[in-house]
Design a protein around this nucleic acid. Structure first.
Lengths: 198, 198
DNA sequence: TTGCTCCTCACGTCACGTGAGGTGGC
DNA sequence: TTGCTCCTCACGTCACGTGAGGTGGC
């Protein structure tokens, strides 16, 4: 808002050291116009003013929120629509990631549990196991899966922010947890998957 | 193991439709040698045998486990080391993702909660808010952060699979959950962040 | 004079998406 | 003859990493 007439400038290396952003990344931000240093030295070296540094901190903060560099540019330019809408989309995306990762973690842990009992598990057995475990999911056709996610998207978009946040939190917590019962069920299923010797 | 003399073959389009994997992806798998169709028609069209289809299913299953195409090639070739080691690394990676996403979700939800009270939040306010919220994390230098994750990695590698799985499950569940108390704390902190009017 | 930091190309990454332009099979 | 599927280039994506070869400042 008010320009403090601080004449101090920073060079790329200094900025990189302070912020943990690499020199190459700063070059990249310059290339795409996201952060153009306000000055150059006589030798052509980039010189960043305190204003530039301030912008960089904002860029880093927004990047930490998972925004793309293009998205960050929009937000900082103020050209985007309602910022809340942006954040809501972010939240929904994060929740999808959490949910997917939770399912994946359960699957991986399940396979690991099954393998840990075997003396010398071969890669062959591993593949076999993973294949069978994922077969269930594959009985759904891509269309069906698409329909499901589309339907869910519609539903989600009709919720107000409060409801959305609540539902998301519940789903995320559910997906990330691993109940002993589930582990037991996997352990049981494992017997059916193992090659019958003799 | 035993080759059922099933002479049936499939063309890329058929395979794509059945498996949900795009034609382009199948071309890509061919290019990198991950899945080379066993035959070609007179016109040069790719013809996949039942063996090829079987391999494709395995590729898809392993891809679902988050492995890179190169990693999948290794596993299917049986050249990799102990498959359990591979899965353990996968598990650790997934847990890191879940944890990071959980932290992110909390931050985004916090900012959203703060913004929802404002009548007409500007992009400027949004950025300000996000910046302040992430400032705490930035008091750590990159080196410190690196040291922390390195130390944690060392610790993790010394655990046996059982301990690892248990710890991971706890961490993941913790990170994904959003307690009312935390929301309240955020709500309280919010007051300090809002610009004091007058 | 020697390091150190800086500079500008420019290719590589990962797993494909997306045309462009053309040919064979029912 | 008309669609449909198939083919092979080949560039684009996203946010930089990683040299290559060269120049200015203390």
């Amino acid at each position: 808002v008010n320009a403090s007439a601080d004449g101090r400038t920073w060079r790329v290396g200094e900025l990189a050291e302070q912020t943990g952003i690499t020199v190459r990344a700063l070059h990249h931000y310059h290339e795409i116009g996201l952060l153009v240093p306000s000055a150059r030295s006589g030798a052509g070296h980039r010189l960043y003013t305190s204003q530039d540094v301030r912008r960089l901190h904002r860029i880093r903060a927004l990047r930490g929120f998972g925004l793309s560099l293009a998205g960050i540019g929009d937000v900082l330019a103020g050209t985007g629509a309602d910022p809340r809408e942006l954040l809501r989309r972010q939240l929904a995306q994060v929740d999808e990631r959490i949910e997917a990762a939770g399912l994946l973690r359960r699957a991986v842990a399940g396979v690991l549990a099954a393998l840990d009992d075997r003396a010398q598990p071969s890669a062959e057995e591993l593949v076999e196991l993973i294949e069978v475990m994922t077969t269930v999911e594959h009985t759904l056709t891509p269309q069906q899966i698409e329909e499901m996610s589309a339907r869910r998207r519609e539903l989600t978009e009709q919720l107000d922010p409060g409801e959305l946040a609540e539902m998301s939190a519940r789903r995320a917590a559910l997906a990330a947890r691993l109940t002993p019962a589930e582990l037991a069920a996997m352990s049981a299923r494992r017997a059916a998957l193992m090659p019958h010797d003799g």
